[in-house]
Design a binder for these strands. Structure first.
Length: 423
RNA sequence: GUGAGUGUAGCUCAGCUGGUUAGAGCACCGGACUGUGGCUCCGGGGGUCAGGGGUUCAAAUCCCCUCACUCACCCCA
């Protein structure tokens, strides 16, 4: 049997209500905060991701779905949305019509990783980007948006918000130097992974999970001590805005993000409820990215929400939303009644009744059993007897009562069904 | 890419140190109740025991290989 590709999965009907809950809550909230939906393509030129994520990042080095299209171009299925959003923003010169561009996106991302709990090769992100302003109140607003989303979803208490500043193009390199110097002195004591990180992305050594590394790092330089005056003030103001809103967060000077393009404010929403994958949403400021991919020098900030992981948190709650219920089930007995019922079903559906009908010659018992299974509150019974009399039976399943009504009175029937379903 | 674990019905699993027709619960279909659901009782369909090879009189069970899935490392949402 042909099965789905590894790391790619179906989202079955019973899971859909939770997905819709997340999507709808997010859309409403994003729009309330002034963001417009912008839909980006699945495929981009490979170059876009190489330039934005950095050549040495794991995503670019080994996780991208990259191939040659028929024209010979190297193209890549997007592993994240920010680069594409920035590209679209620049390509359409949206900065001409408005100094600040606030956009959101929802869709699948692709990374060729080994799947495990909370990690798939095709996964979904909700993505929020604000292009144009370098302003602490904007940073605080973006973080507050994320905080509000999880409070609305009633899972904020399952998460922790961590914030840090990575510095700007002035002070970040200086910190990097200081860190490299320190790591050079202790390199023997580092785990093999950190030996490698030291070469490729030294900041990443800071959040190594290895206990021995964390001990060695006790005396590592602290980024907050290396921030320039501007960055320090910027972070101070951002945090002050968050404090004034009462957003709960912790400052984590060891928080570094995996992607190269981040500057200044970075943040992560993590959880301990999802196995080894603890990041639920994450983002930060990327003031140099737009220039890096060949555009104008426009400061920006954004974040991405892992939808599967968020849905998994929602599943921790017992108040799961149900799917859309039916109004009624149409049970039919006999060939003539089936023909008549087929037309009746369409008439009722045109009137807005959510109706499922029987399609196979089955006993009334079997049809009622199915009506019960799909939780239809009402069953319309139309058999040869009713047809002969020009009537039909409407049965209220919860009450176990039923009444006979004239077949011709469609308006009356619709009104009756709606009234019964309400009660 | 590395490591570990697990593969028996649609789902969750039992099947002891090899022993005859491979089981249960749930789900599905039907009957008891010829046209009235849920509860109960009874019955039914559904399995190349992941695949291949080996050991043996005999393999779901032991050995080897392959594949798949899961978890973890790595990385990240």
């Amino acid at each position: 049997m042909i099965k789905a590709v590894k790391g790619f999965r179906d989202i079955l009907p019973q899971e859909i209500p939770l997905w819709r809950r997340v999507e709808e809550e997010a859309r409403n909230l994003f729009e309330a905060f002034g963001y417009s939906e912008l839909r980006i393509p699945v495929l981009e030129k490979t170059e876009l991701f190489k330039r934005s994520l950095g050549d040495t990042s794991d995503i670019v080095e080994k996780e991208m779905y990259t191939f040659q299209d028929k024209g010979g171009d190297s193209v890549t299925m997007r592993p994240e949305a920010t680069a594409s959003m920035a590209r679209a923003y620049l390509e359409h010169a949206l900065y001409h019509s408005d100094p600040v561009g606030k956009y959101f996106f929802f869709g699948p991302m692709f990374r060729h990783e080994r799947p495990q709990a909370g990690r798939l090769r095709q996964f979904h992100q909700l993505d929020v980007e604000a292009f144009g302003y370098l302003s602490p109140s904007l940073d605080a607003e973006v973080i507050c948006l994320l905080d509000t989303l999880y409070r609305r979803l009633n899972i904020r208490d399952l998460t922790t918000l961590e914030i840090n500043s990575l510095g700007c193009r002035e002070c970040r390199p200086r910190f990097r130097e200081a860190l490299l110097e320190f790591l050079d002195g202790v390199k023997e004591a580092l785990c093999p992974d950190c030996q490698r990180r030291r070469e490729r992305n030294p900041l990443r050594v800071l959040d190594c999970k290895e206990k021995s590394c964390q001990e060695v790092l006790q005396d590592a330089p602290d980024i907050s001590q290396h921030l320039c005056q501007d960055c320090q003030e910027y972070q101070g103001q951002t945090l002050a805005y968050l404090d004034s809103l009462g957003v709960e967060y912790t400052i984590n000077p060891r928080l570094v993000r995996g992607l190269d393009y981040y500057t200044r404010t970075v943040f992560e929403l993590t959880t301990t409820h999802l196995g080894a994958q603890n990041a639920v949403a994450a983002g930060g400021r990327y003031d140099d990215l737009l220039k890096q991919i060949g555009g104008k020098d426009i400061p920006s900030i954004g974040f991405a929400v892992g939808v599967e992981r968020t849905v998994m948190l929602l599943e921790k709650r017992r108040d799961l939303p149900q799917g859309t219920p039916f109004h009624c089930y149409l049970a039919l007995l006999g060939g003539e009644a089936t023909k008549e019922g087929f037309n009746l079903a369409q008439k009722l559906r045109e009137k807005g009744i959510r109706l499922e009908m029987n399609h196979q010659p089955k006993s009334l018992k079997a049809q009622l059993r199915r009506a019960d299974k799909i939780k239809a509150p009402l069953v319309i019974i139309l058999g040869e007897e009713e047809l002969a009399k020009g009537t039909l039976i409407v049965r209220n399943m919860a009450k176990g009562e039923q009444e006979e009504r004239p077949l011709e009175d469609l308006e009356g029937l619709v009104g009756y069904i709606k009234k019964e379903v309400e009660s």
